[in-house]
């Protein structure tokens, strides 16, 4: 298994951060790509909630195609963490990784950075370094 890329969206659909590792196909128009991605995620969550037999909102955890798996985690504040991996992630709990990225990386290097303007793109080097380290250290990388 390997990790392809990571996206972080805020509730307004702004892509706050993007990173990629082993992704051979390049994205041509990144803005367009993000718009498509966010729209899909938004509807996916809506769809999952609508189909649900229970009232509670239930966001998807992942979906899978023969070539990749998309892992999804969102917070009550509307942040969406997405990790694309190969489909052979087996039983490893990737959602947990995303929660770790939220609690240990985003929280410490973005929320607690007083110079970060909420809603703007994340340019912090410390953030991208830490994110990179966490992802590379995954047993499944």
């Amino acid at each position: 298994m390997t990790v392809h890329c990571f996206y972080l969206f805020n509730r307004d659909g702004v892509c706050l951060f993007y990173a990629e590792w082993n992704r051979s196909r390049k994205v041509k128009n990144f803005d367009e790509h993000c718009k498509l991605m966010f729209g899909m995620l938004f509807e996916l969550k809506n769809f999952c909630t609508k189909l649900s037999p229970k009232d509670a909102a239930n966001p998807p955890k992942y979906y899978m195609t023969p070539y990749y798996a998309l892992h999804y985690f969102d917070t009550p504040t509307g942040l969406r963490f997405i990790l694309l991996t190969t489909p052979d992630f087996g039983n490893s709990d990737v959602a947990r990784v995303l929660r770790r990225l939220y609690g240990e990386v985003y929280l410490d290097y973005v929320v607690k950075n007083p110079l970060y303007e909420p809603g703007s793109q994340i340019t912090s080097k410390a953030f991208s370094k830490k994110l990179d380290a966490v992802v590379r250290n995954l047993p499944c990388f």
Binding site: T75, P76, T77, Y102, G103, L107, V111
Partner: peptide, 18 residues
């Protein structure tokens, strides 16, 4: 408050507020 909320959620691990 707009920052602290992330800290509350991440540390309490309450990921849904119904």
């Amino acid at each position: 408050g707009i920052r602290l909320i992330e800290d509350v959620i991440a540390n309490s691990k309450i990921y849904t507020i119904s």
